[in-house]
């Protein structure tokens, strides 16, 4: 096989991973990944999205070389990660779900010892700069906040100047501000041309960061595309408004009857009295709602039409299964 021709950094065909069942009473095996096909192009940010147990981490750890597959074909930067060895590990960056950074060492110390094993690493000061921990460089990793410690793990992932970066649930447990700034960091790396494969169960994270998203469930991809594609084909829009407080309870009955009969989408009323109509034709559905409100002389001050989020897609895909 020629290895000089350009090829996608990640090519996966029919990947399957079985574990022996830990429960001795259960017969046989647990299938964590069940026929996964995946292509990630150079420079792309690809998000594997799914609930816990969907097979995301097993899949990414096979690509990282931490697990052997049961069957299927896997090429990472043109080589099989199962025996890629030192050369492959020099060209990839890995941020594991558990950061695995020594708490007794300072930020600068962990980066300094890590960079020595690469062929052409970034300098420690450059990485500290990128991860924004200049004022924490001499502080022990064990004394950092969760978000800061995760930045150190990211710093370790990029110190070898990787062509391909794996991020396994990079922002789990972050506060919203820390997540935003972490996203900015990853966006900047991607802008420099690093290919990124990340797993997440945060839909906003996938929507914000990814060029393409693959939705995983039960070890398989059940949907794939750009966030906009997925929303267009599975989501549509939502017409939503709140009911005036005083009469909310009685109105919810009325609304479900009258409006549900005429709109194209499905109507749901949340516990707080908010009505949501997920709609594939928002214009006509909006006119149903406004016609009804005008005829009843009801003002709906927060009436709005919003494009579905990836979350709606995710929930819908989950319901279809």
């Amino acid at each position: 096989m020629s290895v000089s021709e350009p090829m996608s950094p990640i090519v996966v065909r029919g990947l399957r991973k079985e574990y022996r069942s830990k429960d001795s009473s259960a017969s046989g095996t647990v299938v964590a990944v069940d026929g996964l096909d995946l292509d990630v192009a150079a420079g792309e940010v690809y998000a594997l999205l799914g609930h816990n147990g969907a097979g995301k981490t097993t899949a990414i750890e096979i690509l990282e070389g931490h697990r052997m597959r049961t069957s299927g074909e896997v090429k990472v930067l043109g080589v099989d990660p199962g025996d890629g060895g030192r050369d492959l590990r020099d060209r990839i960056g890995v941020v594991l779900q558990t950061s695995g950074v020594e708490p007794e060492l300072s930020v600068a110390e962990v980066l300094e010892i890590a960079r020595r094993s690469y062929r052409s690493p970034r300098s420690t000061s450059e990485v500290i700069d990128v991860i924004g921990l200049n004022d924490k460089a001499d502080q022990r990793v064990g004394s950092l906040s969760g978000g800061q410690a995760r930045r150190v793990a990211l710093g370790l992932g990029i110190i070898g100047r990787p062509e391909l970066l794996f991020l396994d649930e990079p922002t789990t447990g972050f506060d919203p501000v820390a997540r935003r700034s972490f996203w900015d960091l990853i966006s900047r790396l991607a802008a420099e041309g690093t290919t990124v494969l990340l797993t997440t169960h945060y839909l906003d994270e996938a929507e914000h960061l990814a060029d393409r998203v693959g939705v995983m469930a039960d070890g398989r991809l059940i949907a794939e595309g750009t966030p906009a594609d997925l929303i267009r084909s599975f989501g549509g829009s939502t017409v939503r408004f709140s009911l005036p407080e005083s009469e909310a309870v009685t109105w919810s009955e009325v609304l479900q009857g009258e409006i549900a009969a005429q709109v194209s989408g499905t109507v749901t009323v949340t516990a707080s009295g908010r009505v949501e109509i997920s709609s594939s034709s928002p214009t006509s559905d909006l006119s149903v709602v406004t016609a009804w409100a005008v005829s009843r002389r009801v003002e709906l001050p927060d009436l709005e039409v919003v494009r579905s989020s990836l979350e709606d897609v995710f929930i819908r895909l989950g319901q279809d299964r």
């Binding site: 070389g65 030192r86 020099d90 594991l96 695995g100 950074v101 020594e102 890590a114 690469y118 070898g160």
Partner: peptide, 12 residues
């Protein structure tokens, strides 16, 4: 702590 696993992700 996951430190061993992380080191195994590096070319060391």
């Amino acid at each position: 702590e996951g430190v061993l696993k992380r080191w195994r992700s590096t070319p060391l």
